[in-house]
Structure formats: structure tokens, C-alpha cells
């Protein structure tokens, strides 16, 4: 990261416009790639120090959630409905993809605030915090994916060739998560309720998204118009069937996600200079 050799700090009246900002943003991102990876490794190693189970926690969580659902289904309290692939596998894939989003948004929205001491004392590209938070979540996802592979073996399930496209189908979701994470991290700095609201809202949102069960007949409209649905179901469809069942929704949401990412990134970039004094 080579700092520019000449900088001017003013009250922000002489700010660049349009393309110039984007050039700055991209340069800054490239310059801070080493920092991002350092912060990522730091949090990765630091997170489970002094913990007994370490990274096992990443898989314990979905196990409990899926177990609960299986139990509720068996007891007849809840009717999950029919899934084309074994239910535990269905739920695990869904939950892993979902947690990529939910975990990402939650960790990222905390990222600025929890690094408050650092932000108000050191000058460094703050985007690095959000990107490295996303790195954490992707790492967790990879751990969970090992579990998915284990489930393939246990249930003697042969995934469709579409699994090769599976990682690419996650990209729009990652963009969306990054975008929302950046936006919420700023809002959370000023209004500390944000993180709590987000966490409640996301839990609620999960039940309106076909994560742990397929789209039910009764509220199908809610599920259909939930913009997250196609992003969650598409990757799973690829494993189960080899194709995306509702491609239109997926493509529209992909474009929307990238747009949200770009807008939020620019907002983040423009607002980050105002952050330290509000921490």
C-alpha cells in the first residue's frame, strides 16, 4: 500500500465527481488487499482462541437448527412439505447459503463499530474492515460446505453437474451482502440500534425465504415476491437439478444486487471520512 505522496485535507468541498471517485475507490481497494488479508487472518485466528470447539461452532449452529426442524416435522407440529432431495441436505444447503447472507450482513454492520478504537487512531482504508468481515463469512461457508459434502456421502446423493456452477451462483448474493453490509456499518456507527434491528429483521426474514423448507402453498406470494428467494434457491437448484428453476428472478436479482453493491460502496467511500468523529 503506497500512500499518495501528496495529500490535501479540507472540509470536503473540493470532492471529485463520477469516474474519478471510482478510480480512487478501485485504487484504494487494490492498495489495501494485503491489509484485507491480514485483518481476515487476524480475525480468523483470533476469533476462536481460548475456545474449546474452535471452528466446529460454525457447523454446530446449523446442526441444531436443522435438527429442530426435523424433530418438529416428525412430531407433526410443523409440515415442511415435500423436497426433491433428502431434507437434511436440502436444509443444510439452504441454511449455508442463507448464513452467507445473514452472517455477512450482521458481521459487516458491526465491523466499523467494533474496530472503533482503530478507526479513531489510525488512518487506513476502512473498506478493508467490511471486506475482511465478508472473508470470515465466506470461510465459514467453506467449512459448512465440507459438511455438505459429508452429507452427500451419508445420503448417497450424487449431485448434478450443476454443482460446478454453484460457486458462481453465489456471487450475486455476496455482492448484495457486501453492499448492505457497508451501508449498515455506517448507519450502525451513528445509530447503535441498527445492529439489533437488523438481527431481528434477518431472523424474521429467514422464515419468509425458502431456506429450511420449500415454498409453501399458502403464502407462496410472499415467498415469490421476497427478493432474496431466487438468490437462495438458485444455488440449491443447481445442486439438486442442474438448472435454475426460475431463472428470470435470479437474473433480475443479480443485476439489482450488483447495483446495490456499487451504490452502497460509493456511499461508504464518501461517508467514511465522517465516521471517526462519531465513534
Amino acid at each position: 500500500m503506497n500512500q499518495p505522496s501528496y495529500v490535501v485535507y479540507t472540509s470536503g468541498k473540493s470532492r471529485k465527481k463520477g469516474i474519478e471517485i471510482w478510480k480512487d475507490m478501485c485504487l484504494e481497494l487494490i492498495r489495501s488487499r494485503e491489509l484485507i488479508s491480514r485483518l481476515f487472518i487476524r480475525d480468523l485466528i483470533g476469533r476462536y482462541k481460548q475456545s474449546l470447539f474452535g471452528h466446529l461452532w460454525v457447523v454446530i449452529n446449523p446442526f441444531v437448527a436443522i435438527g429442530t426442524f426435523i424433530l418438529l416435522n416428525r412430531a407433526g407440529i410443523l409440515n415442511i412439505g415435500h423436497t426433491d432431495i433428502p431434507y437434511p441436505l436440502f436444509a443444510l444447503i439452504g441454511l449455508s447459503v442463507w448464513q452467507l447472507f445473514s452472517g455477512g450482513v450482521m458481521i459487516a454492520s458491526h465491523s466499523i463499530l467494533s474496530a472503533g478504537g482503530m478507526i479513531s487512531k489510525i488512518n487506513f482504508p476502512r473498506e478493508a474492515l467490511v471486506f475482511s468481515a465478508m472473508g470470515q463469512v465466506i470461510f465459514d461457508f467453506l467449512v459448512r460446505f465440507c459438511l455438505i459434502v459429508l452429507f452427500f456421502i451419508i445420503f448417497k446423493f450424487v449431485p448434478s453437474w450443476g454443482i460446478l456452477l454453484f460457486p458462481f451462483a453465489l456471487i450475486p448474493l455476496i455482492f448484495l451482502t457486501l453492499g448492505l453490509g457497508m451501508l449498515l456499518s455506517i448507519v450502525n456507527t451513528v445509530i447503535r440500534d441498527t445492529a439489533n434491528i437488523v438481527s431481528i429483521f434477518i431472523t424474521f426474514l429467514m422464515f419468509l425465504t425458502p431456506v429450511l423448507y420449500p415454498v409453501p402453498l399458502r403464502f407462496s406470494r410472499v415467498f415469490k415476491f421476497n427478493p432474496l428467494s431466487p438468490l437462495i434457491t438458485a444455488p440449491r437448484d443447481l445442486i439438486a437439478y442442474g438448472y435454475i428453476k426460475e431463472p428470470t428472478g435470479f437474473w433480475i436479482m443479480s443485476v439489482v444486487s450488483v447495483l446495490i453493491f456499487l451504490v452502497c460502496w460509493q456511499i461508504f467511500h464518501l461517508a467514511e471520512t465522517k465516521l471517526p468523529e462519531r465513534l
Binding site: 501528496y6 485535507y9 472540509s11 485466528i45 482462541k49 482503530m118 487512531k121 489510525i122 488512518n123
Partner: peptide, 30 residues
């Protein structure tokens, strides 16, 4: 460059190193 001035202008030439508070950025577990 952590705080931006509300009035006036600061010009800096060269790489800036700062020791404003120690241990910020240190991870206590590592």
C-alpha cells in the same frame, strides 16, 4: 487524516506514520 477539518486546509507531503495510541490494531488474543 483521521478527522477532516471543518475549516481551512492541511497539506501533507510524503508518507505519514502516526502513533496516536498504542496497541490500536493489536489483537489481544494474538
Amino acid at each position: 487524516g483521521i478527522f477532516m477539518p471543518d475549516k481551512g486546509k492541511i497539506e501533507m507531503k510524503g508518507k505519514v506514520g502516526a502513533l496516536i495510541e498504542l496497541g490500536s490494531g493489536f489483537h489481544s488474543m494474538l
